[in-house]
Write a protein that binds this DNA or RNA. Structure first.
Length: 1168
RNA sequence: GGGCGAUUAGCUCAGUUGGCUAGAGCGCUUCGUUUACACCGAAGAGGCCACAGGUUCGAGUCCUGUAUCGCCCACCA
């Protein structure tokens, strides 16, 4: 295509270029990777953005950095694949959609829940609504990524809930279940009593609340028929038993009291112990005794637990100042108490209904067994805060309230309903990540030099005991395989990519400090709750069947089965139906359910392990779900007398009821599989993509996600494939606003990348983001607004909002026309202002991106200049390499080539270390200062007639475009097209420039060491110094820049010779005519003088005594200061004796030079 | 409460094993529209490197402590 500089606008206009370049890449399917292509594999998986919202600046940063790495490796010839996709983001998306439905006045979640409860398909209907949202935002996110220039393999785009990923999720769940690493257990969840759902931890907002500490007295009791002393030993054991409480009559108050301190008196109804610190000298003696819980009259033990803070009124620790030393233990309503309960095997008594009112019907297991006061019944049905008032009043009236002290503390609130969350006991699914095979494997995955061994053994014994994985352990034992890590690896299929870099033990963090976060997380990890009471997500593939206890054993032998268990019967039936033949073990597994009481005693009550009443079935075969759905329906129908289909009859004899688990999996479960699910795992056979690109090479992410995501990917990838998900983890900074606040939707300070692309262009955004990326944690980006009336960008008027954040005032005035107004992102987000036709919403922008925009424009114009000269080769001055002056023969040419070679090396080094700042900064300085300010200026007088020089120019430009392409893909691709047309022959010895249709596919530059020319660098440096001297004296003497002046220069012969060789360049740069130059040049009359060690420059006919005296005096002061510092250093004996000789010699040389210059300056001053 | 980071020019930030006469971009001052670029060029001004101790011949850089800001984790006695 004919391309001439006339086509290039005087200014770079991104909007004119970006669309066209995107189309070219698209036409060429430029970023599609072929797994069979060979070469070093290089893979990156995108951290899949949530489909909750459009991308913001943090995503722009994250994806820019990935794209830089990906484009770099693609150009280096690696088999490069960047996997794009999005995350379904369970609760966040469900909530956002629910909110939108509410705002739009449409049926919302609660309506669909009602439909579902009434037997309709509310669940499906609601999921459809979420699906619509997902489609909309997935498209929007993809559009944003495309417009940012992300070179993802769009043919492979995935979504965490698409079929491919769902298959992986199901398989992973099945395997973990089968291996005893998934279990069902009780846990306190963050319960929102208003919306009546569990909340994830990150959906809980901490707010400081002014409350009180109440000090309540519990009477100490002892058994009547024993002495007053030493009754404790057997009492504590037995008091756990409900039968003990029934015989309260055996206990009498001793008249002693213990005083517990609490911020939540209402939970005392559920107390099952009082704890004291065993090291507490005053109170430890109570351990083993019992107290009577007032109101309820439950007899509860005093236990010793070092969690309890010892009281100390002088302590810095607020808790110690407020503590009474006795801690009431309410396992059902406090997470810490739950832990204490686990340690001491305490009963768990839940005294609240899901709406957080006091209730006896949700786990108040000893309601009928305690001789409670009548007052207890009055409390039933009260809201938790009413109950608090009532209970405090009761204690006061009974004289049992010791004290009340004001106390402010932080309390978790629901981000949805804004009420305090209630820790609430419920059944949940867990992954036993505390297992050696998971957390242990994650620790072993770390590269040795980043792992600190400070905290004893990597794996601590007895961990699972503390975190309550009892059921899972039992299962493991019953399976009898007790699979250790070696076992796991043994049955994994080894794959081509497993050796070397991807081996466990190769995981490395950049910057290294984040390895610590990773390590300590795994050393203190708790089992992972993976069930969520939501609709949007991967549904848990488990069916719960109730066993017909009457018939279950009778017919087993007659049925001819070799599995005399209810599970065996189910399997036998399903095997027949699905023709699994001998592979049933591979297709289906089960978990004998234990009634989910919470103390060991509860669990044991009435449970005969050989005769479970309920089994949980998990299958890796999705067809089972369809079949069991049908079966479940038939079972229901059969209650209405409809006969069961013959194929289900045998099943129906042993199963009375079956239903699918209603919960979905935590979003992070599918995210944890992302590196393998996207590549088609679990299919290993003939799956070249998986073999090639797993492990991938680097994960780029923000640090907040190390625990949530990185950890789990490492554990799962290691467990399922025996290799790492990636070898490098690069953690980049978080972008804050100009006030140092996190960017967030609610503050309206988030910036849409498309807004920046609109105001500055994609390349400018990317390059600036790269330049901002240092190895610190956070970077600030002041946010400006663009007046929608005039397009003017300015810093908005800020206010402090109610929560104390600095935000843009909701309504702003146009800076040029005060009558026109507009609203800001904060105004809209906070609901304080609404966008209208007269008052539209402003786009955000930031002047930070001027840096990249100006640089893009500089590159654009430098290229325009270069191309206008390169085209002239058509006019008959056809160049052959090494002809005439020779390629790179002149000093400036040799200099720019050696600089180019140096910059290539620096660029490689920076990128290899994920040092994006240095990458961008190096190129910025090189292109702007070296290429534009010096090289191009220097060659202006000669380039037209010097074909060799044009070759160098074309080569340097070529290399600049290649090096810059990863960060500025659009402008460089566009300019590449023109360069191809104007100068198809490029490259010099030692720096080949192989042609390529697309710059995206061009080879990464590689320079021969022979191109390095230290002499040229040194010589050019001296020439540059002389030019700068001349410019300085010109400016001081107010010589207009365009005026050519006559100059004589006194310098040594070698330098004079060199400058004469490059005279055209030299005189152009300084805009001078040389009158005389050499060691013997004398100062002419009426000449201005500038003196440096290197040379003395005389500006003819510019003598101005005053300016001269000023300049020389000023310089002399500087030099004298320097002399003083240098000689001071040399006079220090310690320095000359201990510092390296080379350094000392350098100092001596510098001093000599400075002294010589000082002498000359004094001489000149004397001559004035 | 535990952990991590930051504090360097008016602003946003570099400064890699201690050797610094401390740098960049923006902003500011002076000059300038010579045909690549005013999103530009030339020349300049501007810093007790948060504070206090220590190690060292030598500290922006290493150690200890203090202050302020930010982030992550934990946290309802």
């Amino acid at each position: 295509m004919p391309a001439t500089t006339t086509e290039l606008a005087k200014q770079y206009r991104p909007a004119d270029v970006e669309g066209e370049i995107l189309a070219r890449w698209d036409d060429a399917n430029a970023f599609h990777a072929d797994e069979s292509a060979g070469g070093n594999p290089f893979a990156v998986v995108i951290p899949p953005p949530n489909v909750t919202a459009a991308l913001h600046m943090g995503h722009a940063l994250n994806n820019t950095l990935q794209d830089i790495l990906v484009r770099w490796h693609r150009m280096m010839g690696d088999n490069t694949m960047w996997m794009p996709g999005t995350d379904h983001a369970g609760i966040a998306t469900q909530t956002v959609v629910d909110k939108r439905l509410q705002v739009e006045g449409q049926p919302a979640l609660k309506d669909y829940k009602r439909i579902e409860a009434e037997g309709g398909n509310g669940r499906e209907q609601f999921i459809d609504k979420v699906q619509q949202w997902k489609d909309e935002y997935e498209a929007r996110i993809t559009d944003q990524l495309v417009k940012m220039g992300c070179s993802c393999d769009w043919d492979r785009q995935r979504f965490t809930m698409d079929d491919v990923c769902a298959k992986a999720v199901r398989e992973a769940f099945f395997q973990l279940f089968k291996d005893g690493l998934i279990y069902r257990g009780k846990r306190l969840v963050n319960w929102d009593p208003v919306t009546q759902t569990a909340l994830a931890d990150d959906e809980v907002e901490m707010e400081t609340v002014d409350g009180h500490f109440w000090y309540m007295k519990y009477p100490v009791v002892e058994e009547r028929d024993q002495g007053t002393e030493g009754s404790s030993d057997q009492g504590s054991e037995q008091s756990l038993d409900g039968s003990m409480a029934r015989s309260l009559g055996r206990f009498v108050d001793t008249g002693e009291f213990v005083t517990v301190a609490t911020t939540r008196p209402e939970t005392m109804l559920g107390d099952t112990a009082v704890a004291v610190n065993p090291d507490d000298p005053e109170r430890a003696k109570f351990i083993g005794r019992n107290v009577r819980l007032p109101i309820v009259n439950r007899i509860i033990p005093v236990v010793g637990d070092d969690y309890v803070v010892k009281p100390d009124p002088e302590s810095k620790d607020e808790k110690a100042r407020f503590a009474s030393g006795f801690l009431k233990v309410t396992p059902a309503h406090d997470p810490n108490d739950w832990e204490i309960g686990q340690r001491h095997d305490l009963s768990v008594i839940n005294v609240m209904a899901p709406d957080a009112s006091i209730s006896k019907d949700h786990g108040w297991s000893d309601w009928d067994d305690t001789p409670r006061d009548e007052f207890c019944e009055i409390l039933l049905g009260m809201d938790r805060y009413e109950a608090r008032e009532a209970i405090v009043t009761w204690f006061r009236e009974q004289g049992l309230l010791d004290d009340v002290r004001p106390y402010s503390h932080s309390v978790g609130h629901s981000y949805r309903s804004h009420v305090p969350v209630e820790p609430y006991l419920s059944d949940q699914w867990y992954v036993k990540v505390t297992d050696e095979r998971l957390a242990g494997a994650a620790l072993r995955a770390m590269v040795a030099d980043q792992r600190s061994d400070s905290d004893g053994p990597i794996w601590r014994d007895g961990e699972e005991e503390r975190h309550g994985g009892t059921e899972a352990r039992r299962h493991e034992e019953s399976d009898g395989d007790g699979a250790g890590a070696g076992d796991v690896n043994a049955r994994r299929q080894p794959s081509a990519g497993f050796e070397g870099e991807g081996d466990p033990g190769a995981l490395r963090f950049y910057p290294a400090r984040y390895a610590k976060t990773f390590q300590s997380w795994h050393e203190n990890i708790r089992d992972w709750c993976i069930s969520r009471q939501l609709w949007w997500g991967h549904r848990i593939p488990v069916w719960t069947a109730k066993i017909n206890t009457r018939s279950r054993w009778l017919d087993v032998s007659k049925m001819g089965l070799n599995r005399p268990t209810p599970f065996g019967i189910v399997v036998a039936q399903l095997t027949k139906l699905f023709d699994w033949s001998d592979d049933a073990d591979e297709a289906i597994t089960w978990d004998q359910s234990i009634p989910t009481g919470t103390s060991r005693k509860d669990r044991q009550a009435g449970v005969d392990e050989s005769c479970p009443t309920v089994i949980r079935i998990c299958s890796r075969d999705p067809r089972v779900d369809e079949l069991l759905t049908e079966f479940a329906k038939q079972l229901q129908d059969s209650e209405r007398g409809i006969p069961i289909h013959s194929k289900f009859q045998q099943l129906a004899e042993c199963v009375t009821c079956i239903e699918r688990d209603p919960d979905v999996l935590d979003t992070w479960f599918s995210s944890a599989l992302w590196p393998i699910s996207t590549l088609g795992w679990p299919d290993e056979e003939n799956n070249a993509a998986l073999q090639t690109w797993n492990p991938s090479n680097v994960l780029c992410t923000a640090r907040e996600i190390i625990t949530l995501w990185v950890s789990r990917m490492v554990m799962f990838n290691t467990y399922f494939r025996g290799c790492l998900p990636f070898t490098d983890v690069f953690i980049h900074a978080m972008i804050q606003d100009g006030e140092g606040q996190k960017m967030s939707k609610s503050l309206g300070n988030g910036v849409d990348p498309l807004d920046i692309i609109h105001s500055h262009g994609s390349d400018a955004m990317r390059f600036t983001l790269a330049e901002m990326t240092t190895h610190t944690q956070d970077v600030r980006m002041p946010v400006d607004v663009v007046c929608p009336h005039t397009g003017e960008a300015f810093h908005p008027k800020m206010i402090t909002n109610k929560a104390g954040f600095r935000v843009a005032a909701p309504v702003q005035k146009c800076p040029t026309d005060g009558n026109k107004k507009f609203v800001t992102g904060y105004g809209v987000a906070s609901g304080e202002a609404k966008a209208t036709d007269e008052m539209p919403q402003a786009r955000n922008t930031s002047s930070r991106f001027d840096y990249g925009r100006n640089f893009a424009n500089k590159l654009w114009n430098a290229t325009r200049f270069a191309l206008s000269h390169l085209e002239e080769r058509h006019e008959g001055t056809e160049a052959r390499r090494d002809e005439g002056s020779g390629v790179g023969g002149s000093l400036v040419d040799r200099w720019i080539l050696t600089r180019t070679a140096d910059v290539i090396a620096q660029t490689d080094d920076a990128l290899a270390k994920y040092d994006f700042h240095r990458y961008a900064h190096t190129l910025y300085q090189f292109i702007w200062n070296d290429v534009c300010d010096w090289y191009i200026e220097a060659i202006k007088p000669t380039v037209k007639g010097d074909a060799g020089q044009r070759r160098v120019l074309a080569t340097v430009l070529d290399v600049c475009l290649r090096l810059l392409h990863p960060s500025m893909p659009f402008i460089t691709e566009k300019l590449w097209e023109h360069l191809q047309a104007s100068a198809p022959e490029r490259g010099v010895d030692g720096l080949p420039c192989e042609p390529s249709e697309l710059l995206s596919h061009a080879a990464w530059p590689r320079a021969d060491v022979a191109l390095r020319d230290e002499a040229a660098e040194d010589q050019f440096e001296r020439a540059r110094t002389v030019v700068t001297m001349i410019r300085e004296v010109r400016a001081e003497n107010k010589v207009p820049p365009r005026e050519k002046v006559e100059v004589s220069i006194k310098l040594d012969a070698e330098l004079a010779d060199m400058l004469r060789k490059s005279e055209a360049a030299f005189t152009t740069l300084a805009n001078i005519t040389i009158v005389a130059m050499g060691p013997d040049v004398a100062k002419p009359e009426h000449a201005a003088v500038v003196v440096r060690p290197l040379a003395e420059v005389y500006l003819h006919q510019q003598f101005d005594a005053e300016a001269e005296r000023d300049r020389l005096t000023k310089r002399l002061a500087e030099v004298e200061k320097n002399v003083k510092a240098l000689s001071g250093r040399l006079n220090n004996k310690g320095y000359t004796e201990k510092a390296p000789e080379k350094l000392v010699q350098e100092t001596r040389d510098k001093l000599a030079e400075a002294e010589s210059e000082a002498a000359k300056l004094r001489d000149r001053l004397g001559g004035l």
